[in-house]
């Protein structure tokens, strides 16, 4: 396990204005697999996800203690450049939020802010990542249209492509299909299955069937505590804890 862990937390505790949202989380996320974080609403799933790329600290009154290590380096240490940490991780949120610009510029945004200027290079990247997110054929003739004209499902794949374009190692997805229709959801799930050969994917979901379909590794969080974690099969078929079993059987939700 040790050699293949990509991201690891040590005693991670997060509190909002005094109330603890996450308590003492210790977990290792395996590399190049899909890890699902499951648990009821409001139990800290998204908080855990956002602590991985330091987006949490943008909010007022958040206290974070403990460590989050990516490739062995503590991302909360002062010597780390926050933009480099975030660049390592692509984020996919619940609803797609395309940037207020054209489809092309949405993809080119990341590479541009990291210093890429050449049109030919950008063109190549835009095509590469739109193709990787399975969107290229649908938008190649209208790259200069505002991204907001795409359907919600297309927008979510655009956001995926946008995140991939900064060449991250990890994809963080916060209930990425919750605003999408079943067909679009299915497309996103298919993308994830394809992408896991190259990326470590962490997905927050409250859809158990989705976790079952996608995940190789599962974290179950309940009321801010990591109740148990392990390979998907083990969690779904023989959970160790009573509360995990009840959640999976639908007794609690």
């Amino acid at each position: 396990m040790k050699e293949t862990s990509h991201l690891r937390t040590e005693n991670l505790t997060v509190s909002y204005g005094g109330a603890e949202a996450l308590k003492n989380i210790n977990v290792e996320i395996p590399e190049k697999q899909i890890t699902a974080i499951i648990g009821p609403s409001g139990c800290g799933k998204s908080t855990l996800l956002k602590s991985f790329n330091r987006l949490l600290e943008e909010n007022d009154g958040v206290k974070i203690s403990g460590r989050v290590l990516v490739d062995g380096a503590d991302i909360y240490s002062d010597s780390e450049d926050i933009t480099c940490i975030r660049k390592k991780m692509g984020l996919l949120s619940q609803r797609p939020y395309p940037l207020p610009m054209s489809i092309y510029d949405n993809i080119a945004f990341g590479p541009r802010i990291h210093g890429m200027k050449k049109k030919a290079g950008l063109d190549r990247l835009v095509e590469k990542y739109l193709s990787l997110a399975g969107l290229w054929d649908e938008v190649k003739d209208r790259l200069n249209e505002p991204a907001s004209r795409l359907s919600i499902g297309q927008q979510q794949r655009l956001c995926l492509a946008r995140g991939l374009a900064v060449e991250p190692e990890i994809i963080l997805a916060d209930e990425p299909t919750s605003a999408l229709d079943p067909k679009s959801s299915q497309k996103i799930e298919e993308e994830f299955k394809k992408l896991k050969s190259d990326y470590t994917i962490i997905i927050v979901t409250h859809i158990l069937r989705q976790a079952r379909r996608l995940a190789d590794y599962v974290l179950f969080i309940y009321l801010g505590e990591l109740i148990e974690h392990g390979p998907s099969r083990q969690i779904f078929e023989s959970p160790r804890e009573q509360v995990t079993r009840e959640y999976i059987q639908g007794v609690i939700s």
Binding site: E58, R86, S93, P100, G110, V166
Partner: peptide, 27 residues
């Protein structure tokens, strides 16, 4: 402006000022 739009730009590695200048001001 939804916070998620800021998150989207920041998570791509943009600085706060880049986020404001290139994304928020436009919006």
């Amino acid at each position: 402006i939804p916070g998620e739009l800021r998150d989207a730009s920041l998570s791509l590695g943009a600085t706060k000022w880049q986020t404001i200048k290139l994304v928020l001001l436009r919006k």
